[in-house]
């Protein structure tokens, strides 16, 4: 996959960086280019990635205090007056506490506000279940007109941040506080709404997003040793979902595993299942994520293992879905024989 410009994670030392930092770099780059942006934070600039921006562009930065609801409402007003606004707070505060304002003011008005959920997923690690946002993708995805992006690494996070400035309507981007592997490079293609095939294969496909794209690639490598060709797709845009790439994966490989660092209800897995349930051919799907429960305190890497989100777990999920694919194919050929 040389044309994707990916890091060779299997043969080189993989660097890590919090995707929050990619957000920060994207914001600074936008302001340097002269884009008329305003960045807001709700007293979390130290962790969310906006403190560097604040230092460089104090006139373009507004700390609203611990007023997430007012922050979103104020952003709506700024957007109504023509500003390109990025609002920032932790994922569960943005998508959770301010959900009604995002719904009734931002989305109902179809306003150009970019909502940035920092420290999302399990990435706030030690903070534990009350502060880990596992349902943000699901609750943002149901809002009409909302674009939802979950970048895989800091480099993609920077690209997503910059792309959001030009996207009409509201955008939710989810960032991680923990250092996560850098798997893409500046030349890796990134287009909102278009997934990227990061590894070819015809036996099964792993559709992944966020930090788990790295784990998915490692899982595919494990399965290669079993003689299995597993496709890996980076589905960074959960909404609008790249239905073409998902449908192709279903038709061409016949078995899908989705992986995400969030709830198995209503996220990437939900989006893929909804899309495929309405196509003619049944496709076995396995949704890997956190099963209808809250998180817990721990290091980010420990939590990925604890919740069964590592390469090894994903590889087992692929084997499981492949056995269902086999049964389905056998049933189909029996039916044809009759």
């Amino acid at each position: 996959m040389a044309e994707m410009g990916l890091v060779d994670i299997h043969h080189s030392v993989v660097e890590t960086e919090a995707t929050n930092r990619g957000y920060e770099r994207g914001l600074i780059e936008l302001a340097e280019r002269g884009t008329d942006i305003i960045v807001m934070d709700a007293d979390l600039a130290g962790s969310s990635g906006t403190s560097g921006f604040r230092k460089r562009f104090p006139d373009r930065f507004l700390d609203i205090g611990l007023c997430e609801q007012d922050m979103i409402g104020t952003a709506a007003g700024l957007a109504l007056a023509g500003k390109c606004v990025y609002v920032t707070t932790h994922g569960m505060l943005a998508a959770g506490k301010a959900w009604d304002i995002i719904r009734s003011t931002i989305c109902y008005g179809a306003l150009n506000v970019n909502i940035c959920g920092a420290d999302a997923g399990l990435s706030s690690g030690a903070a534990g279940g009350s502060r880990q946002s596992l349902e943000d993708v699901a609750v943002m995805r149901t809002l009409p007109g909302m674009t939802v992006i979950v970048p895989a690494d800091a480099i993609e996070a920077r690209k997503a941040t910059i792309a959001a400035a030009r996207l009409p309507g509201p955008v939710y981007i989810r960032f991680a506080a923990a250092r996560v592997p850098i798997i893409t490079t500046n030349i890796t293609p990134f287009t909102v709404g278009q997934g990227g095939v990061y590894r070819q294969g015809d036996d099964a496909t792993i559709l992944s997003c966020g930090v788990l794209v790295y784990e998915a690639l490692k899982a595919a490598r494990i399965l290669e040793d079993d003689g299995l060709g597993v496709r890996v797709v980076n589905c960074h845009t959960i909404k609008p979902l790249d239905r073409a790439i998902v449908t192709r994966a279903a038709v061409e490989t016949g078995a899908l595993v989705t992986t995400e660092e969030g709830s198995t209800l209503g996220g990437l897995g939900g989006a893929v299942a909804e899309a495929l349930a309405q196509t003619a051919r049944p496709t076995p799907i396995r949704i890997v994520g956190i099963e209808d429960r809250f998180g817990e305190s721990g290091e980010h890497e420990q939590l990925l293992a604890y919740f069964g989100l590592t390469a090894r777990d994903i590889a087992s999920a692929v084997r499981e879905v492949l056995s269902r694919k086999k049964t389905l194919r056998e049933t189909e050929s029996e039916q044809r024989a009759e």
């Binding site: 507004l62 609801q69 007012d70 979103i72 409402g73 104020t74 952003a75 709506a76 007003g77 700024l78 957007a79 109504l80 007056a81 023509g82 500003k83 304002i101 003011t105």
Partner: peptide
């Protein structure tokens, strides 16, 4: 009121 504030700031 939040919306009004945002417009006023702009």
């Amino acid at each position: 009121l939040s919306i009004a504030n945002g417009i006023a700031m702009a």
